[in-house]
Design a protein around this nucleic acid. Structure first.
Lengths: 138, 138
DNA sequence: ATCATTGCAAACACTTTGCATACGC
DNA sequence: GCGTATGCAAAGTGTTTGCAATGAT
């Protein structure tokens, strides 16, 4: 089964009609796990789909979020980034070069009892600092 | 020493000229540790300072961030919230009632070595879920 | 007098909405 | 054919910018 077929199947299994645009957006997210913005995705796909509109990208991302396929990240102050959902992981943003790294994260629950009885659905961890590459260039 | 004097001193000690607007914004942040948005602050202060403009609120917040007095939070998808810096803590946002709670957080560093040699300057932890109050109302 | 701060309005950028067209079953 | 998806344009919203007026030392 070729990748496109596979992606199509994945969409169908989630009750998402596998339109060409949706397949391409999902394919992009799978191939580029680099926390792209809506605009990154749009710019990358508009050469393949010249008639593509941003609304469609936003619509598609929204749909993927609803279906639990994608998670929006609020790392940048001004725009949303999107992450295809794999295992739980944290993000590290280098404030020098702007790169965003994934890392395994194990959180020990709060030592106080503030969250006693709360239902935790989603855990976001984002560190900021300087990556070793940038540290070495200074 | 009354609170206003105290706030004035705090600003001066950080090399921030204690203008009336700045004092009021800082006073608001100290009195309302509820992660307000720029607009919340503006709306709350404009009755006391009728000529206040949003630019000033944004300017002031930006200045406070530079001076390490305030930290912007990207919890909401559309707007920035601001937190006066106390000790390190995580945030829990209830997706049902919208409340944001603080909690103590102890992070054990990543089990893999992705961040080996990185300089971590800032750690953000934000959980989402349902708070116990909302859980009980269902 | 000089320099910083303020406030207004306009500009910006990301995102959402309304609606007509086109597509797929 | 009918309901959904798409795409364009316009509107919306939070934030930033330019610049003149004001304020402080």
């Amino acid at each position: 089964m070729n990748p496109i077929k596979q992606i199509t199947q994945q969409l169908i299994s989630l009750n998402i009609r596998p339109s060409f645009q949706r397949i391409k957006v999902l394919e992009y997210l799978i191939d580029h796990q680099t926390h792209p913005s809506a605009d990154d995705i749009y710019k990358a796909l508009v050469s393949t789909i010249p008639t593509l509109s941003k609304s469609t990208v936003y619509n598609t991302l929204e749909l993927f979020i609803e279906k639990g396929l994608v998670k929006p990240l609020m790392i940048e102050e001004n725009e949303a980034l999107y992450d295809i959902i794999l295992e739980q992981h944290g993000h590290f943003k280098c404030t020098s070069c702007g790169s965003i790294f994934n890392f395994d994260v194990s959180l020990t629950l709060p030592s106080d009892d503030t969250l006693l009885g709360f239902k935790i659905v989603d855990q976001n961890v984002c560190f900021k600092g300087i990556c070793n590459k940038c540290l070495m260039n200074t």
